[in-house]
Structures are given as structure tokens and as C-alpha cells.
């Protein structure tokens, strides 16, 4: 349903009086999302994942490249509105404290997009608001309250209800649970999964939490310095990562079994400045496997094997990891105690 072709986004950044520098936040990125899939984009801060989300959502325009949504080509933000895409593409942000108007009642927050997108008469709008409230398990009385009367998790549920109010086809979630406590993240994640499974909404989920992404996604794309370096079905990406950066990310996550890390992980340094992207492969100066060819020839995102679903941008993509990245499972007693109690709480 979404096709991105060589999307590039550059920013002009002031570098002192009269001079500017060009920052390439997203660099010739191509990606297609299938209708109804849960696609996650992972990467570290500054990799361009949020910029990409803003382009897909029509909040800013790409500098170059083509974006197609259900076959309609979009080149700028004005076209987004003209082609009726405001209703079809919606976004949820990280911070539920700043994304809801503090002076509006929850009922009005939910009604506003319906009114501006022409949902129907006042009666139809109120019927829809009631439906949305039941989806996020808010009782009627909660609709008359203000955002500050709710917790972060509850507010994020309101933000989700507002985003899905007019039945979007694509929901972009930019780090929707990063600001929330461990014990309530599940409320939001499970709600998003319900929306994907029951309403058939396509979800583009932006995150830096690899353990989470592994569990909930259909497919995962890994971004590094404005580029996709690997794309694969979630299970495959984690079981058989082919890009050294993907391996570095996976091995960097603290393990619950307290396993020590390889020296390689610790020697990997930090992401270089986006003003100084290395020639050839952009990961080469942090890569333990880099060789001559990496400095001169940028590897494209290509199939790893005959399986077209697993792509990696590495000259050595045909080689599996030297040892499996899998970690032995950790078990705890009575895990089902909280699974069965995992109902979302009503405020």
C-alpha cells in the first residue's frame, strides 16, 4: 500500500554567518509496505527514522524521490491534503503529555478529527466517539475529563483513539511507548496489535527497542545514517542477521542472563556525524569485517539469498554470522499470573 522509491531528505543547516551545510537525514531510501502488515523501523538516534515517518505522514516533503500511497504519487505536503490522504495516514507521537491539547475534554479531542475530516453530522460524530471510547476501554464519564487527569498510558490510548478516529489505512507510531513505564507499555502495544489484526490497519512502528520489535512485528527494517541496511521478517532478522550493524545492535542489548559481550561490540564506537558520512559503505569505519571494497563501493540493499524477503546492504551478506546471535531463553515461574491479568484497566 505504501511505496517509497529513492526517498531523500536534505536539510540546510546554518554553519556560522552566511555559510550553510547540507545534512542528509534520509538518503535514497526505498521500501514497500504491504496492506495490513506491522512493519518496524529500528535504529539509533539520528539515523533518520523519525524524518522518514514525518515524510510518510505528509508533515514534510522529501527533497527527492517518489512516494506512492495506493498507487497515488505524492511529491509534496499540499498534495497530501488534496488527495484525501490526511484521513488515510495518521500518526502517534512519543510524548502523550505534549500531543494532546490540555484545554480540551477527551470527548472533543476525539471529535475534532472527525469533524475536520467530514465524518458526518453531530449525531454520527458522537456515535463514533462512543465507539472509540469502547475500543480504548474508557467509560463514558472519562470522556468529560481533561488530559491532565489521566496517566501517561491512558493519554497515549487517547492519542491512539484520535489517530484511528476516521479509520486510517496507515498508522505511523513514532516511539509510542518509549516514555512509558514497563508495566503499562503492554496496554499500548496490545491495543496497536488489536487495531492491526481487527481493523486491518497497516502499522509503521518506529522504535529503538529491539526486544519489543522482535516480538510484535511482521517485518523489521534497520536504519543507519539515513539508509536501510537490512530488511527481513522479524524472526529471521534476529535469528540470522546479515548486516554487521544489525548484529551490533542485537548484541548491545543487555541480556537478562547477564552474559558478557564480545570485545567487538565494545570497540564499535559511535555513529559518525551525518555531515561526514563515510564513502562507500556508511558503516565501514565501525565494522569489524570492513575490507578494501567497502571504502570504494557502496553496497546496495539486495537479497541475501534466493529468499527475496531478506535484504541486506553488505558486500558480505551471503555469509551468516560467525555464531548464532540467539540467546538462551530465560525462564521465570508462574509467568501466566500476569498474562491472565493482562486486561487493560479502565480509568
Amino acid at each position: 500500500m505504501l511505496d517509497l522509491l529513492n526517498i531523500t531528505r536534505r536539510y540546510r543547516v546554518s554553519a556560522g554567518l552566511l555559510s550553510t551545510r547540507i545534512l542528509t537525514a534520509v538518503d535514497k531510501l526505498s521500501l514497500s509496505l504491504r496492506k495490513g502488515e506491522f512493519f518496524s523501523l529500528v535504529g539509533e538516534s539520528g539515523c533518520g527514522k523519525s524524518t522518514l515517518a514525518r515524510i510518510v505522514c505528509g508533515l514534510e516533503a522529501q527533497s527527492e524521490g517518489e512516494m506512492r500511497i495506493d498507487g497515488k504519487t505524492i511529491t509534496g505536503t499540499a498534495e497530501f491534503a488534496d488527495k484525501g490522504l490526511r484521513r488515510r495516514v495518521q500518526m502517534i507521537f512519543q510524548d502523550p503529555y505534549s500531543s494532546l491539547n490540555p484545554r480540551m475534554r477527551i470527548r472533543d479531542i476525539l471529535a475534532e478529527p472527525l469533524i475536520s475530516l467530514g465524518w458526518g453530522n453531530a449525531q454520527a460524530v458522537q456515535t463514533r466517539v462512543a465507539e472509540l471510547a469502547s475500543i480504548i476501554r474508557f467509560p463514558d464519564s472519562a470522556l468529560e475529563r481533561f488530559p491532565h487527569q489521566f496517566s501517561g498510558g491512558q493519554r497515549q490510548r487517547v492519542a491512539i483513539a484520535r489517530a484511528i478516529a476516521a479509520n486510517p489505512d496507515l498508522l505511523i507510531c513514532d516511539e509510542p511507548v518509549s516514555a512509558l513505564d514497563v508495566s503499562i507499555k503492554g496496554q499500548i502495544i496490545n491495543l496497536l496489535l488489536d487495531i492491526q489484526e481487527q481493523l486491518g490497519t497497516t502499522i509503521l512502528f518506529i522504535s529503538h527497542d529491539l526486544s519489543l520489535v522482535r516480538k510484535i512485528s511482521d517485518r523489521v527494517g534497520v536504519m543507519y545514517l539515513g539508509s536501510l541496511v537490512e530488511v527481513a521478517p522479524a524472526q529471521q532478522l534476529f535469528a540470522d542477521p546479515r548486516h554487521p550493524y544489525t548484529r551490533l545492535l542485537i548484541e548491545s542489548v543487555p541480556a537478562l542472563n547477564g552474559k558478557r559481550r564480545e570485545e567487538q561490540v565494545l570497540a564499535a564506537g559511535e555513529m559518525p556525524s551525518p555531515f561526514a558520512i563515510p564513502s562507500g559503505c556508511r558503516f565501514r569505519d565501525r565494522c569489524p569485517l570492513a575490507f578494501d571494497r567497502c571504502a570504494t563501493e557502496a553496497p546496495g540493499l539486495q537479497p541475501v539469498t534466493s529468499d527475496e524477503r531478506h535484504l541486506a546492504a553488505c558486500h558480505l551478506r551471503a555469509q551468516p554470522a560467525p555464531r548464532p546471535a540467539e540467546r538462551p531463553p530465560v525462564t521465570i515461574p508462574q509467568i501466566d499470573l500476569f498474562r491472565t491479568a493482562a486486561e487493560t484497566t479502565t480509568p
Binding site: S183, I184, K185, G186, Q187, I189, N190, L193, D209, S211, L212, R214, K215, I216, L256, V330, I332, I335, F338, R339, A341, A342, E343, T344
Partner: peptide, 13 residues
């Protein structure tokens, strides 16, 4: 999420 039972849903307190 590490304590996966194979499903996609997360436990909640």
C-alpha cells in the same frame, strides 16, 4: 518482551 510465549501480546500489570 523477552519472556515470549510465542504470541505477540505483552503482559500488563
Amino acid at each position: 518482551p523477552e519472556f515470549s510465549d510465542g504470541g505477540r501480546r505483552l503482559a500488563v500489570i
